[in-house]
Nucleic acid binder design. Structure first.
Lengths: 214, 214, 214, 214
DNA sequence: CTGTAAGCGAGACGGTACGTCGAGTCTTCCG
DNA sequence: CGGAAGACTCGACGTACCGTCTCGCTTACAG
């Protein structure tokens, strides 16, 4: 469920003329830039990479980058957002009971983050100082993930496995919050944590079993 | 429960000689710097503040700042870590039932963040690009808060209100994670969210009602 | 007799590739920087001028200065070397007898120094701590002046006015030496000194009247 | 004819009380500072030496330096001015004919400069940016040398060897000017130049042998 | 098949913050 | 009160990165 097309387009530039005039944008350059960005951010981290480095590595000029992306952050976002969410949302999860489905979902998510976590952390950091970018990032990176998680939980509700009045939004926030929290504090995101978090979340979706302390 | 002493000391410099030789560091300068940092970060945000601004506002030279703190981040950490956790941990919470206690705790926490949130977000952002600083921040800012929350939950367990086998650590991660998540995504941290999060967390601490396998 | 071209060129940077790639250096920026440097050094003296001031006054970034000149000194040298030697070497001097020609030459030189003396002193001072720059300055500023003075004296020899075995080099050193000496000690360089120095130098070029061994 | 005492004294500090109160100044410290300054400036040049380096090398505090000298420049001036003019003015020169005496004088001067030239050049450079220091330097370093050279020439006049109307001041300026000029341009100050300069100067003191060109 | 519009690599540009360094002053404790 | 130690203010330094601009050049479609 990933866009096959690169997300940038010509609408950035003022082309209120006819559809295609002048030299068309080089597809190769776009791919090279994304690949270079991905590779360099892997190796040196978000702040350790400059746009000059990316341009040099991609064999392009800087202007070619800024013609397509408005900032380094949005480029890196593009370089990472489009990937690694493929496997997570695969349909095989659907058949499992809610807790196992959630655990499986989280395990896959954590695996993907093993690769992309560093970059994604850098993006979140940058988002703190740029509100425009924060909104971009929310739309591109945060929201889709929230939606697929929410859908997973909703399936549990629909199946009668989870209560109808469950607070799905709070759960989603808590689950992703816990993930980001661990990611940003550099604590391990492993299978064990996935299970515990899944158990906790599923439990949280049920009302507590009457007041115990009567 | 706040350290009365400033956390920095001469141990940064090489003083393997006799104690207190030369002119001692000016306490006044230290306080002026911290106050200026706090004030400026409130007003302009973390990235909107430069060391020059802080030095100017504090009436000191930049060198005096760099002699004491290795970076802007650690200075701002010092400027904020010592504050705003005072009222959160007050004892009046103790007597309440777990969920209300937690809701109250979160409400206070969120109120404090209304002031300091901007600064604290900037620190977390910087921590993503500096591992040494991340460790510092964990010790000074994250860990103490985790402990007081964990203690609150533990009291619920001790009172028989919460199950003995509850996964307190996962809960703490989820609660603080949700808080940071909302904070960094610039979503409101209000009383409503405090209640919902508290309800969710308390529920999560109980085993689900066993009908899930049906 | 002034070079029309600015003396700096791209040879500072590594351009072993093809000629003129990328955006060419802005001629306007170069001129603005030189003009700003000249003006500011006139007004505040060599040490009273910072690269920030020059950049600000020229409306450029500091980097643009450092891209072209390796130091403030070489910039100021460029700003002054091309000027103020115009009128000194004018041909009207040629027809005069040697002593008057020399006196006239020195008078004009001193007049030029009334303007540029402060800057030029600052350059000589800086040259004392930078051997590379000293060599630059010798080529650009010292040598040309030596040559025109030597040519003046040589014309006296050719005209039969001065002895063939006269030690022209020692004379040139003594004349310019006296000038620099007075300049750096802040003693007046006026018409009177010009006459006396000219008389002394012309006398020095003749063998003494042989009665000295009596 | 050199002061045996160090030139600094207590009059710099405010001691309008009784003659000696409190701890007296350590003679050893003063000597150590001068020796350290001399040594370091020899090795690293004037600008390559900091007051911290001098204090460290002398085993004193910086304040001990600044209690006695108002600036780094005056300290270095003291460190070099008091020396190496001893041999130059020795009486054995007196008996020689003027030109030989001058040549001998210059040879000795140049020999001394082989050691101290670097430091003295640095001082002259600094003097260009500090008028107060320039005056100091003139009094301490320039004037005494001028006087002894003038006295040497005056002896030639008194002996009837040089004409009564000779322009001694212009000669002194030219001779020392030539020396400084060569020193600052880093050209060799050797015996050859000493002879040529002496010959030129003596010749310059005589009126030229009537107008040759009639 | 020529003109015009745009993309391209390259790299200079203005601006802003950084962290460092040196001079000379101030402030401690110890003689 | 001097001396060693070292922190202090001030101000300049040269570097780094961002995002923009400007060369000469290609590459396409339009007339």
């Amino acid at each position: 469920v990933v866009p096959q097309e690169l997300s940038y387009d010509r609408s950035m530039t003022t082309d209120h003329t006819s559809p295609t005039r002048g030299r068309p944008r080089s597809e190769a350059a776009g791919h090279a830039i994304l690949a270079a960005a991905r590779d360099l951010v892997f190796r040196h981290g978000y702040v350790g990479v400059t746009t000059d480095m990316i341009a040099k590595a991609a064999g392009t000029g800087k202007q070619t980058i800024y013609r397509r992306w408005p900032s380094k952050a949005e480029l890196v976002l593009d370089a990472f957002a489009a990937h690694a969410s493929d496997r997570i949302d695969e349909d095989d999860i659907t058949v499992l009971p809610a807790e196992q489905a959630l655990a499986q979902f989280l395990t896959r998510l954590f695996e993907a983050l093993a690769e992309t976590g560093g970059a994604v952390r850098g993006l979140m950091a940058y988002a703190q100082e740029d509100n425009t970018f924060r909104a971009q990032m929310f739309e591109r990176l945060i929201k889709p993930r929230r939606q697929s998680l929410r859908a997973l939980l909703q399936r549990g509700v629909d199946a009668g496995e989870l209560p109808r009045d469950a607070d799905l939004d709070a759960t989603v926030s808590a689950v992703y919050g816990a993930m980001w929290y661990r990611l940003m504090l550099d604590e391990p995101l492993d299978g064990d944590f996935a299970s515990r978090l899944a158990a906790f979340a599923i439990a949280g979706l049920h009302r507590p079993p009457a007041r115990q302390v009567v």
